[in-house]
Amino acid sequence: MRVANLSFRYGRRDPWVLSGVELNLGGGDVVEITGINGTGKSTLLRLLAGLLRPVRGVIEDRPAVVGYAPERFPVGQPFTVAAYLGHMAAVRRVDPRSAGEWAERLGIDHLLGRRLHDLSKGSAHKVGLAQALLCRPGLLVLDEPFAGLDAATRAELPRVIGEVAAGGGIVVVSDHQGDLRALPARRRHEVSDGTVREVPVAEEHPDDLSGAAEPDTVLEVRVAASKAVDLAERLRAEGHHVRTIRTAAGR
């Protein structure tokens, strides 16, 4: 897959988000996209997935089957998890049983009867990952896939990514969480000032690769009782330890 002289902006008078991007991606590549917020990482991912069209330049030889999982899964849809994944399996023309298989592997099989808009952020994110993986993609594009995941799924996802790459697929991932370190063969590209450059993985700061456990910090958060259950669920989904203490009214 080749990206040549790619430039993009959202409106004719808007500033260029990306300019003159050159990329060559081959089967089996795992490409990590890095950069600070607002530099155009998500825009680049949508361009690679075919959801946006370049204003200038070309993207050639994109694999025929593309799986894309956005950073925020759109839950405002009138489906249960099972109905949504079944619908996506039909659209992708894949065996509907694959929906259940991915739901089980990503830990949402117990939520198949739940409506999308009732899901926590972490569970909705897993649904987004499942629909991207249903079709055995030749190109898998994941925007912050580790955000909000529980520890078990965070550990499973690098294995899934490795399997797609081992099967000859291209995987492109933006990852603030650092969970791709489990895949030493990955490539790394940094988005900055509208350009994209490859950064040798060896240039990463030694502290980022040490694997040393970061010390915990205990935060005290007071929240209305009506919101406590949902907040606790979301924090646990992100891998935090949560202890709920009920206080007397007015304290």
Rank of each mutant, 00 (worst) to 15 (best):
residue 4 A to G: 00
residue 5 N to V: 01
residue 6 L to T: 12
residue 7 S to W: 03
residue 8 F to H: 09
residue 9 R to F: 01
residue 13 R to C: 01
residue 16 W to T: 02
residue 17 V to R: 08
residue 18 L to W: 01
residue 19 S to C: 10
residue 21 V to T: 07
residue 23 L to A: 06
residue 24 N to W: 14
residue 25 L to K: 00
residue 27 G to T: 01
residue 31 V to R: 08
residue 34 T to L: 12
residue 35 G to H: 12
residue 37 N to H: 07
residue 37 N to Y: 09
residue 39 T to P: 00
residue 40 G to M: 10
residue 44 L to M: 09
residue 45 L to E: 07
residue 48 L to H: 06
residue 50 G to I: 05
residue 52 L to C: 00
residue 54 P to R: 08
residue 55 V to T: 11
residue 55 V to Q: 10
residue 56 R to N: 14
residue 56 R to W: 03
residue 58 V to D: 15
residue 59 I to S: 02
residue 61 D to K: 14
residue 62 R to V: 09
residue 63 P to I: 11
residue 64 A to G: 10
residue 70 P to I: 11
residue 71 E to T: 13
residue 73 F to I: 07
residue 74 P to W: 04
residue 78 P to G: 14
residue 78 P to I: 13
residue 78 P to Q: 11
residue 81 V to L: 12
residue 85 L to M: 12
residue 91 V to H: 06
residue 91 V to N: 03
residue 94 V to E: 12
residue 98 S to F: 05
residue 98 S to E: 15
residue 99 A to Q: 10
residue 101 E to F: 10
residue 101 E to S: 11
residue 103 A to G: 13
residue 103 A to S: 15
residue 107 G to T: 02
residue 111 L to Q: 09
residue 112 L to V: 14
residue 115 R to H: 13
residue 116 L to P: 05
residue 117 H to N: 15
residue 118 D to V: 08
residue 120 S to K: 08
residue 120 S to A: 12
residue 125 H to W: 03
residue 126 K to C: 07
residue 130 A to M: 05
residue 131 Q to S: 05
residue 131 Q to R: 13
residue 133 L to Y: 05
residue 135 C to M: 09
residue 137 P to R: 13
residue 137 P to E: 14
residue 138 G to Q: 04
residue 138 G to K: 03
residue 138 G to T: 09
residue 140 L to H: 06
residue 141 V to F: 00
residue 142 L to P: 03
residue 142 L to Y: 02
residue 144 E to V: 07
residue 144 E to C: 09
residue 146 F to K: 08
residue 146 F to M: 11
residue 147 A to G: 00
residue 147 A to S: 10
residue 150 D to P: 15
residue 152 A to K: 03
residue 153 T to I: 15
residue 155 A to H: 03
residue 159 R to P: 01
residue 162 G to W: 02
residue 162 G to K: 03
residue 164 V to H: 01
residue 165 A to N: 06
residue 165 A to Q: 04
residue 167 G to L: 09
residue 167 G to N: 15
residue 167 G to D: 15
residue 169 G to K: 04
residue 170 I to A: 06
residue 171 V to H: 05
residue 171 V to Q: 08
residue 172 V to G: 00
residue 173 V to K: 08
residue 176 H to L: 14
residue 176 H to K: 11
residue 176 H to T: 13
residue 177 Q to L: 12
residue 177 Q to N: 12
residue 181 R to K: 07
residue 183 L to E: 07
residue 184 P to A: 14
residue 184 P to N: 12
residue 184 P to I: 10
residue 184 P to M: 13
residue 187 R to S: 04
residue 188 R to N: 04
residue 189 H to G: 00
residue 190 E to S: 08
residue 195 T to W: 01
residue 195 T to E: 03
residue 197 R to A: 15
residue 199 V to M: 02
residue 199 V to I: 09
residue 201 V to Q: 06
residue 206 P to H: 01
residue 206 P to N: 03
residue 207 D to V: 15
residue 207 D to Q: 14
residue 209 L to Y: 01
residue 209 L to I: 05
residue 212 A to T: 14
residue 215 P to F: 10
residue 219 L to Y: 12
residue 221 V to Q: 00
residue 222 R to L: 11
residue 226 S to H: 11
residue 227 K to D: 15
residue 228 A to N: 11
residue 230 D to L: 11
residue 234 R to D: 15
residue 234 R to I: 12
residue 234 R to C: 09
residue 236 R to P: 04
residue 238 E to G: 15
residue 247 T to M: 13
residue 248 A to R: 11
residue 250 G to C: 06
residue 250 G to V: 11
